[in-house]
Amino acid sequence: MTISKALLDEAQNWRQAFHARPELGYSEHETSRRVAELLESFGIEVHQGLGGTGVVGTLRNGNGPTIGIRADMDALPIHELGEPHHKSQHPGCMHACGHDGHTAILLATAKHLSSTRSFSGTVHFVFQPAEEGLAGAKRMIEDGLFKLFPMDAIYGLHNWPGSPLGRVVINAGPMMASLDTFEIKLKGKGCHAAMPDRGADPILAAAELILGLQSIVSRRLSPLDSAVVSVTQIQAGEAINVIPEFAVLKGTVRCLQSQVRDKVERLIGDFVEQLPTAFGVKGELVYNVGYPVTENNVDAAMQIRRAAVSALGEENVQWGCSPSMASEDFSFMLNACPGAYVWLGVDGDEPSAALHNPYYDFNDRVIEPGVRVWTHLVEQSLPSA
């Protein structure tokens, strides 16, 4: 299979244009319009507005199964410090996670398949808004993604610094962790800082609670279970000589198994209810259930593995890896439809900057292997008669 150099050059230009004009979640208006415009120019049926700024392109070619391929479009609220010629023109906003590259790869795949049509069935190209913490995938589903566009399977990829350029990494199970957040309000009794015995110190209770929460992973879970509990914010007090009435803790929980996730939520509740009382302080917990575990369907994972091997060679496919404790809202789609999610390595001669780093820039050399994998996946999942 040959991917034309002209198409790859086009895709690189699209990618760099998206990079120069990044947009945050649910504000991808220009990006969405451009994606729709390009899909229509390829002769692909376009549906706009799903999930706010989402776009779905549909390519039908005879009878057969239906699959979806998803790319995310949103950027991050980070000021770009690198100096590529396509540097962000929007201060305080940049494509620091490579969603510009994901979008360009899927657009190039759509254009290639619309011209070759070496498959029998239907492909839905899903361009999703608001992956970065705003659950755009969930909103697309709520707006009827899988009802309006029924699919037998859906697939997604993410570029992955730390893996060699063009290497596909995949598990037949969890790829990324769930993400939940919590807020703990501690109510004590304010008093003069010189007379702590006349009050009930919520800051002291907060300090002990932070240490106690860390014992959940180290002492209340099996060493074989995977979880991270992180307190990331502490808010308390206004005056240096006053023990405050309230303290607030905020943080995140990440797990790789649903049953572990449920247990951690329950244990945090136990700690918040019981530990502060030893200091005369009352604790209240608000626990926000967020992104599920990103867990691949075994059959779908094997399907994309076969496609990646045929596209890139056995040596460029890693079957089995340590999942990431970061999170991904493609998990909502995998909960609603069988599918699989893979990582695509981007490290060339020099290691890539990390994701969410102000110096990150997508490696355009990975566009071609990305298009090859998606094309082989479509042609093998929807074989011609």
Rank of each mutant, 00 (worst) to 15 (best):
L113R: 10
M94C: 12
S118M: 10
D100R: 08
A135C: 14
A104H: 08
K147I: 14
Q89G: 14
K87W: 02
I141N: 12
T116Q: 15
H124E: 04
H90F: 12
R117W: 03
A96P: 00
F149N: 09
D100N: 12
G133Y: 03
H86K: 01
F125P: 03
S88T: 00
S115G: 07
D143M: 04
H99V: 09
A135N: 13
S118K: 15
L107T: 03
F125H: 05
L148M: 14
A137K: 08
V123F: 03
L106A: 06
H95F: 03
F119M: 07
A110V: 06
K138D: 12
S88W: 01
M140H: 09
M140E: 11
S115C: 06
L148A: 12
D100G: 07
H124I: 05
K111M: 03
E132V: 11
L107D: 02
L148C: 12
K111A: 04
K111F: 00
G133P: 06
C97Q: 04
A137F: 12
L145I: 06
H99D: 06
R139Q: 14
I105H: 09
T109E: 04
S114Y: 06
D100V: 07
C97H: 07
E131C: 12
F146G: 02
K147P: 01
M94E: 01
H102P: 04
H112D: 04
T116E: 13
F146C: 07
A137P: 10
K147E: 15
A110M: 11
I105C: 09
E132F: 11
P150T: 09
D100S: 10
L145D: 05
F127M: 06
